[in-house]
Amino acid sequence: MIKNGRRGSLSGVLMVKGIQCHIAYPEKGRNPIHQAAPAIAELAATEWDQGNEYFPPTTWQISNIHGGTGATNVIPGQLEIKFNFRFSTASTPEGLQQRLCAILDKYGLEYEIKWTLGARPFLTGRGPLADAAVEAIRTVCGIETELSTTGGTSDGRFIAPICGQLLEIGPSNATSHKIDECIAVDAPAQLSAIYRRILEKILLA
């Protein structure tokens, strides 16, 4: 599998403000969990885009949610939600921010958001470089491969803005981040041969 692109990553910390009070007197407070629940349901059900030829649709997921003091008789004064967009080239960070805020505003929430743009999406479409990589892997390894943009972000995002084309090719990541992470003994030699073959195809064509 050749990584010819990666999705972008846009994270946010949403603070929904309520009014803390004794749970026996809800009329004296404002429960931010109850208020936010319909908005959360709509955000989770929203189709942000339909993706494209290379990318799956953009997704929005909550990673952490917390509200309350830990006591069972207190309505919380605020709700904290940490979330993340994994987005394709079919969407922009600015567009996703605007659409999310529009949904929150629709439900009359009092809130603040701190945004973190971890990565912008990048893509190298089919062309001479991708074709050379597919052919090189076929020649060296005897296997057919495919272009893919699945998975998380990568260091490719740091050089994508200055590269006309960018592909990521490496050993199998079947054990990545596991306690027994490893690669095959012959993988480095195969990679060296693949890189050489790609250069030959591009430079000697």
Rank of each mutant, 00 (worst) to 15 (best):
T92Y: 08
L104P: 01
I23G: 13
E27I: 00
A119F: 09
G51A: 03
K178A: 13
R197C: 15
C101A: 10
L147R: 07
A39D: 03
K201R: 14
G152C: 10
G118F: 03
P76K: 01
T59E: 06
E80V: 07
H66C: 08
A193I: 08
I183H: 05
P57T: 09
Q78A: 15
P93R: 08
G156A: 07
P161I: 10
C182L: 12
D49I: 03
A193H: 07
S172C: 11
Y111M: 09
Y25L: 12
A39I: 04
W115M: 08
I65R: 02
V74E: 08
D186W: 00
T116P: 00
V140C: 06
T145I: 09
G67W: 02
L79R: 00
G68P: 00
P93C: 06
I33E: 03
P188A: 06
E146C: 12
E42I: 05
P128M: 08
A187M: 10
Q98M: 12
E53N: 09
E146R: 14
V134H: 14
I194D: 00
A130T: 11
T149K: 01
G8S: 10
K201S: 14
R120P: 00
T124G: 01
G77H: 05
K106I: 06
T139P: 00
A193G: 03
V74R: 01
K201Y: 14
S88K: 01
I40F: 14
Y107M: 04
A119M: 08
G51M: 02
G127V: 00
Q190S: 04
I23F: 04
I40N: 02
A39V: 03
N84S: 10
H34K: 13
G95E: 06
L96G: 02
Q98T: 14
I143S: 05
K178T: 15
C141H: 10
G51L: 02
E168P: 00
K3I: 15
R197Q: 15
I162V: 15
V13L: 15
T72L: 14
R157P: 02
T139E: 15
E144L: 09
I143T: 11
K106M: 08
A41F: 03
E135W: 04
A184G: 06
G77Q: 09
A205L: 11
A41V: 07
D105S: 05
G70D: 06
Q190N: 07
E168A: 11
T58A: 11
S63E: 12
I194Q: 00
L96D: 06
T149H: 01
A102M: 10
L100S: 04
D105M: 03
Q165H: 11
T59Q: 04
